[in-house]
């Protein structure tokens, strides 16, 4: 018998709590595969944030710290500054990173803090049962925008990659999606690159992964994948927003 598929070493055997149709599990696996492929499990310290992915500390098989809401980039900075040889990553949702943690992420990026950030954007607060996020789309119905997000009341969605790309600190900024196999493979490559940038001491790297929340979007798992492709990608175009190695033909 030949093993053709198994869990990455960087993941624990614990069953995940995520809802049907949620792509956190896929994105966790991509992070695990990246850590495995770079052979950095023993030197990696992860930082879990607040939101659905708070339990990430149960699923990654490396040292983990759980941070207060929005503060993961500050916690990661504290770790990285005293252990510069270690690989430090944060795993944050859009409420955590783009709302309450906006100061922390912008300043970590501006400092060129040599960490890797996995930013999972599903355009809603999942853990608290479906409130409007800073990334919710215009017109998107949530429990706190029951008639759809209106620009008049709630302004516009925040585009993190575009915003951070104005700074000199980041080495790599990419937006990918998790809604079908082709995009998942792309996302895996981007995440691996974001970890490699840190190993090469190039500074702050962030991958924004568009993700689903079928339960709070009120859709089937399959319907959620389609909704992401049809609605989120036009607002959040996929692509590489910054890559300091691009000229090197990397």
């Amino acid at each position: 018998m030949r093993t053709v598929f198994k869990k990455p070493r960087a993941m624990t055997k614990r069953p995940m709590h995520y809802c049907p149709g949620c792509t956190h599990g896929i994105i966790h696996r991509l992070v695990g595969e990246a850590i495995d492929s770079l052979g950095i499990l023993e030197e990696t310290i992860g930082v879990a944030s607040v939101g659905c992915s708070v339990f990430a500390y149960d699923y990654f098989n490396c040292d983990m710290q759980q941070a207060a809401h929005g503060r993961a980039p500050a916690v990661a900075t504290g770790i990285k500054r005293v252990l510069p040889q270690r690989t430090v990553f944060t795993y944050q949702g859009d409420g955590d990173l783009a709302s309450i943690g906006m100061a922390e992420i912008v300043h970590a990026a501006a400092r060129g803090e040599n960490i890797t950030v996995i930013f999972v954007n599903n355009a809603i607060y999942g853990m608290t049962s479906g409130q409007m996020a800073p990334t919710s789309l215009i017109g998107q119905k949530t429990t706190t925008s029951p008639r759809g997000r209106s620009v008049k009341d709630a302004g516009y969605p925040i585009k993190i990659c575009e915003l951070l790309a104005t700074l000199e600190g980041p080495s790599y900024l990419a937006r990918v999606s998790s809604h079908d196999p082709r995009h998942i493979l792309q996302a895996g490559r981007a995440i691996k690159k974001a970890f490699r940038m840190q190993k090469e001491k190039r500074g702050f790297a962030l991958v924004e992964v568009l993700s689903t929340c079928s339960v709070n979007w009120g859709l089937t798992p399959r319907g959620a994948m389609e909704w992401l492709a049809e609605n989120m990608i036009p607002t959040y175009p996929l692509g590489v927003y910054k890559d300091v190695t691009a000229k090197e033909g990397d």
Binding site: A74, A103, E104
Partner: peptide
Amino acid sequence: AESEVSAINMVYGAAGT
């Protein structure tokens, strides 16, 4: 740090090591 909030959370990260 960018704020006292960030400073104390950097302390959390470093203390955790």
